[in-house]
Simulated scan of single mutants.
Amino acid sequence: MSPAPLVCRGIGEFREALADRLGAASGAVSLGLVPTMGALHEGHGHLVRLARQENAVVAVSVFVNPLQFGPDEDYERYPRALDADVELLTRHGADLVLAPALEQMYPDGEPLVRVTAGRLGAVLDGASRPGHFDGALTVVNKLLNIARPPVPARFRAYFGEKDAQQLLLVRRMVADFDLPVEIRPVPIVRDDDGLALSSRNRYLDPAQRRSALVLSRALRELAAGQVGLEAARARIDAEDGVRLDYLVVVDPRTLEPAEPAPGALALVAAHVGSTRLIDNLAL
């Protein structure tokens, strides 16, 4: 097994350790950053493994960002299990973990200046969770600046495709602000039954987990042309304990509505019990 990663609770400590690791790297020097909110699962492990394959140094951030939670959402109960996270990251070869306290990230309280997601952040999940993407982009921008290599090195950041709208917004932010980082999208990882891996899956009881399978099933049937959009929505709505937020087909570059056709992206969000889940599938 790989040695355990160095866990840094302070930003200054992390930057010093990062400079040491990059300075000691041989060959092509590169950094792979995997930003997370912790409660890690094998989907995160897949991101870290890919980062390990492609970079000399791999860093993972673990920070539950309050800016992206609404007043009625699950910030307080969002699972926090740093020891288990470090165990998973050890298996997958991470070198450094940045696990800052809230006061480290926001020493003066909530930041007065934030990144705004604009019109792309006001639809779909942004409409259901106002302000969510402003908070997500603000912390991602901050993490990219914290982890920017202090020595000449290629810099990549890894994001899962399950959060398709967030991924699009991060890519737009990087392009629009000319940030010196390559965004690496990583395909969705699913359990054997098709459910997309998510930190929130642990909230589901066995019956709810079975009900949640309707999301991936509806996406597959829609992609295969077995059902139309309205029929797929009706199937989800008819599932016991599931409340559909949206099921749409969009242009993945703009999130504008599109016909169900090759190149389009189907996106779904629904509450299973009190747990909100998202999924998507390219058509």
Rank of each mutant, 00 (worst) to 15 (best):
A4C: 04
V7Y: 03
V7D: 03
I11P: 00
D20T: 04
D20W: 05
A24G: 12
M37A: 06
H41V: 14
G43Q: 07
H44N: 14
H46V: 15
V48E: 14
N55D: 10
V57G: 07
A59P: 09
N65W: 12
E73F: 08
Y75C: 06
E87S: 09
L89F: 02
Q104M: 04
G109M: 08
P130N: 06
F133C: 01
A136P: 07
L137T: 04
N141M: 14
K142M: 13
P152H: 10
R154N: 10
K162I: 14
L168S: 03
M173D: 12
D176C: 07
F177P: 01
D178L: 13
L179M: 13
P180Y: 05
P187E: 11
P187I: 07
L197P: 15
R209W: 00
A212L: 04
A212W: 02
A218Y: 09
V227W: 14
G228D: 14
V242D: 01
R243W: 01
Y246I: 01
Y246A: 04
P252R: 08
R253S: 15
E256I: 09
A261H: 13
P262I: 05
G263V: 14
A264F: 06
A270W: 00
H271A: 01
R276V: 00
L277V: 03
L281G: 08
